[in-house]
Design a protein around this nucleic acid. Structure first.
Length: 860
RNA sequence: GCCCGGAUGGCGGAAUAGGCAGACGCUACGGACUUAAAAUCCGUUGACCGCAAGGUCGUGGGGGUUCGAGCCCCCCUCCGGGCACCA
């Protein structure tokens, strides 16, 4: 295809840019072929949620960087994979459906088209043959498949978990839909309610998720965030006998077994299973009331309100295994059931929280660590043990080991590790999400399914997953993989069911089915039971959270239409995992942790050949409004990419976004500043194109640059190449400006120099560079041209500037041959009139000479 | 409270093996071209003193190391992000 050169005489981006966008798209310039014999480079963007509002300026920031990197790497000879897709399940679309009755699928399709058009207008050229959409049944079929693998491996279970329930709206709300204890929509009060939820056992991978971080090229801060989030802590689990309950023992987790002699009371959380059994009749009423109060509070409230400690004595006593002392057992909500064992030994002398509690309720405080001069309490520093019998005098570190060793030999304690990380609450009471490929059956039907040895039996976990549904214990059965995808049913209304379930619960024909226990075939219960062996089953009505689809999309890009597996192993081996993942730091913990978890599971299953998905991660910063505040509709400081493109063109926008500052920095937008970029592009145009639209006469075939300009050009090749590779686009652009300023001044401009400059700029400003490249008579497209190499010999200068200082202050300078010896340099410095005037009447104490850099004379 | 990151002209930002602070761009001011404007080009633009040559100060504040510190060390202030009864 011929180059789509425009007829424009001046730099008219509005005609030039669409031409080249069409060209890249029709030529599939950036489509990647599998198994091509080249080094591969896979650059991945965090895919967007296609909202109705369209792109905001934050999207093109990261996407410009990846688009430029792609063009750069391709020119360097890599086979580059750079795909794009849609994280399209989600709340806003569902809410829009509730309000308008429009099917989310329709809205999604419209929004995706709009996003694609916007991305194209920015000159972003993706491999659209690899487009993925999380809401496409051919995609979520494999999301469901992965869930089935988790289910089969025993990594998915069902639990009653508290969620936010809004009585006025008749629906469950997500955390982000709640602002200050009220619903975002309608400002109604919300409350906690325990609902049946799917939970994924991410904690089983806690250790590997920590260890895996070491090998990753990620920002340290992000690794640290993940480590903190997982919150590994080494300690001991200790067993306390309970007075008058010979059959029971109270297990606690502590990181300070060395302070065991300082334990003066015990605390169990209000949800602790032993609480009811051990509470004495005299305390029963008070404890019950306390439990009830605690249950009404959310975790948030519990954390926020309870700066002030609260609690009740249970009347029961525990026995300290190390000295036989009786310790009162309290119930208090500062102890969380979800961490450790849900019970603690309290050592008020050496723990801030226990200290505050003991003070409030007048409990005993026994000091067991001698902090030397520091006699304040609570004392959490190092020291020597005291009041600890045979262990007195030991350091806490020594005592930890010895005390646990002793308890371990007595069978009442052992070393253990605890994590802050909780299992992943994986279900939502929503319509617009992936349905779970799960059916609920009775116990006897489950046994029948298990023992008939059919397709359903093959997918069952070792231990059955059960739940209480309508007062009965039901057993979870997975659909056979070949029956996937399980699509969403057609529903009459997307409105909440009002019964703390998703709208799926109202799709009766979908919900209630006859299930063939062998083949897994389903028919609606509204039809006649097809055979005697068929059993009654009910589908899971929860749907998966938005995280699910984004957990593995980077794999599907590699092999988007595979119908036999989520991804072909040979293709995954060829492309490897993304060489670079660019996305916002707001996903530093959840998305990146969930995706790593799934990837580790897939690795264990042999689905993927690498244990970690994202080798190298880069967070682009946030673009603030012109007022320096976060962009938001309410502030009215939102910048719309389409407006900027209309005024300045996509090339200018791309360049300016990258020129604003370091990619990772948070930086304010400034509308005036883009004018400098427009000037730069117009200057480039005028350097090559005369007013009549023909090539400038100054352009000469085969001419040579003067030495200085040539050195600058080669310096520019070097710097731009290095900066692009390191995503330092701001300094690369600055160098390109310096270079253009020089080249534009020349009376004769060698064509080769002009072409080289265009190649260097093309990754960031592809449209204008394609246009000028073609007008210079080259074959389209500039993307096919090999990246220029710099000639190191052209970089060397034969003379260097030497700075003269007196007492560290600049007093002069001179140019010298590179290898000038120190004595000559020092002599020259002394001879410099300005230097000499500062030496006058003073004694030179020291002469410092760094060849090639500086002479510093120290006088006194 | 704990853990990170940051602070450089009027503005966005350059500059780290410790060696010319302020590259590049914006803004502002002055000038050229023009009937005029736009576009373009040239100059000035950290503060203070000075007619000038030149000098003094200057990278959030205070100390230190060094011939020499934006960069290294200690203390402090402010801003941003994350976690927050995790035993």
């Amino acid at each position: 295809m011929n180059a789509p050169i425009s007829q424009t005489k001046t730099y008219d981006f509005s005609t030039i840019e669409p031409n080249w966008q069409k060209y890249w798209s029709s030529q599939k310039t950036f489509y990647a072929a599998d198994f091509e014999d080249k080094p591969t480079f896979y650059v991945l963007d965090m895919f967007p949620y296609p909202s109705g509002a369209g792109l905001h300026i934050g999207h093109p920031e990261g996407y410009t960087a990846s688009d430029a990197l792609k063009r750069f790497k391709r020119a360097q000879g890599y086979n580059v994979l750079h795909p794009m897709g849609w994280d399209a399940f989600g709340l806003p679309t569902e809410q829009y459906a509730i309000q308008t009755g429009k099917h989310p699928r329709t809205t999604t399709a419209t929004n995706v088209e709009n996003f694609k058009a916007q991305l194209a207008r920015l000159g972003f050229a993706y491999d659209w043959d690899r487009e993925v959409n999380t809401t496409d049944p051919n995609y979520f079929r494999w999301t469901q498949w992965i869930f089935l693998q988790l289910f089969k491996k025993g990594l998915a279970y069902v639990d009653e978990k508290p969620v936010w329930w809004c009585p006025a709206l008749g629906t469950v709300l997500a955390n982000e839909e709640i602002i200050d204890g009220r619903s975002e929509r309608g400002n109604h009060p919300v409350e906690r309610r325990a609902l049946r939820q799917w939970v994924l056992k991410i904690t089983a991978y806690a250790e590997r998720l920590i260890d895996g971080l070491d090998a990753l090229d990620w920002p340290d801060s992000t690794k640290r965030l993940q480590r903190n989030w997982i919150g590994r802590s080494e300690g001991a689990e200790l067993s306390f006998a309970i007075d008058e309950h010979a059959d029971l023992s109270l297990k606690v987790f502590t990181t300070r077994p060395d302070t065991l002699f300082g334990a003066t009371y015990m605390v169990v959380s209000p949800e602790h299973p032993l609480l009811e059994k051990i509470t004495t009749p005299a305390q029963a009423a008070a404890v019950k009331a306390y439990q009830k109060r605690a249950a009404g509070k959310s975790d948030l409230e519990r954390a926020e309100i309870s700066k002030e400690k609260s609690g009740e004595p249970t009347g029961a006593w525990a026995i300290n295994p190390v000295n036989g002392e009786r310790l009162p057992i309290w119930v208090a909500d500062y102890v969380l059931m979800s961490y450790g064992t849900g019970a603690i030994m309290a050592v008020p002398a050496h723990d801030d929280r226990d200290f505050a509690f003991a003070k409030k309720f007048g409990l005993e405080i026994v000091k067991v660590i001698d902090g030397g001069a520091d006699t304040s309490l609570p004392y959490t520093g190092d020291g020597k043990l005291m009041n600890s019998g045979a262990f007195d005098g030991l350091s806490p570190a020594e005592a930890k080991a010895k005390i646990v060793e002793q308890l371990s030999s007595e069978g009442s304690g052992d070393l253990t590790i605890s994590y802050k990380l909780r299992d992943w609450l994986f279900s939502r009471q929503r319509f617009w999400g992936e349905p779970f490929p799960i059916l609920w059956v009775s116990e006897s039907d489950y046994d029948a399914i298990k023992h008939c040895g059919g397709k359903l039996a093959a997918e069952l976990p070792q231990a059955p997953v059960t739940a209480q549904i309508d007062g009965e214990t039901r057993y979870a059965v997975a659909l056979p993989p070949e029956s996937l995808p399980l699509d969403l049913p057609e529903v009459e209304s997307f409105a909440p069911s009002g019964a703390a379930e998703s709208p799926l619960a109202k799709a009766t024909d979908w919900l209630k089915v006859w299930l063939n226990p062998e083949s897994g075939e389903c028919v609606p219960q509204s039809k006649a039971k097809p055979g005697a062996a068929w059993v009654a089953a009910m589908r899971e009505t929860n749907t998966m959270p938005q995280w699910a689809g984004s957990c593995w999309y980077y794999l599907r890009y590699i092999d988007p239409s595979n119908t036999a597996a989520p991804v072909d192993k040979a293709k995954a081996s060829y492309w490897g995992m993304p060489d670079l993942y660019i996305g916002g730091a707001e996903h530093a913990v959840l998305h990146l942790l969930y995706a790593r978890f799934w990837h580790h599971v897939l690795y264990d299953l042999g689905v993927v050949p690498h244990p970690e998905p994202f080798k190298k991660l880069f967070h682009q910063g946030i673009i603030l409004g012109e007022d320096g505040e976060k962009m938001s509709k309410s502030r009215g400081n939102v910048v719309n990419p389409d407006t900027i493109i209309a005024e300045h063109g996509a090339d200018a926008l791309r360049l300016y976004l990258m020129f604003l500052g370091p990619l990772e920095a948070m930086k304010p937008w400034n509308t005036q500043g883009i004018e400098g970029i427009s000037r730069f592009l117009r200057k480039l145009w005028r350097m090559l194109i005369a007013e009549d639209g023909e090539l400038k006469e100054a352009l000469e075939e085969g001419a040579a640059l003067d030495t200085e300009s040539e050195r600058l050009l080669h310096q520019t090749i070097k710097k731009v190449t290095e900066d692009y590779g390191a995503l330092r686009f701001n300094t690369a652009i600055s160098q390109l400006m310096v270079c253009l300023n020089q080249l534009a001044k020349l009376e004769r401009l060698p064509r080769s120099a002009a072409e080289c400059f265009l190649q260097l700029l093309a990754p960031l400003a592809p449209h204008i560079c394609e246009e000028l490249w073609a007008r210079l008579g080259n074959q389209p497209s500039i993307c096919q041209a090999r990246w220029p190499a710099f000639d190191a010999s052209k970089l060397v200068e034969d003379t260097v500037k030497i700075i003269f200082q007196v007492n560290g202050k600049l007093r002069g300078e001179g140019r010298f041959a590179k290898d000038t010896d120190q004595a000559t340099l020092i002599a020259a410095a002394k001879a410099d009139p300005k230097v000499a005037s500062h030496l006058e009447g003073k004694t030179i104490r020291r002469e410092i000479c760094i060849p090639g850099r500086i002479v510093n004379l120290v006088v006194g």
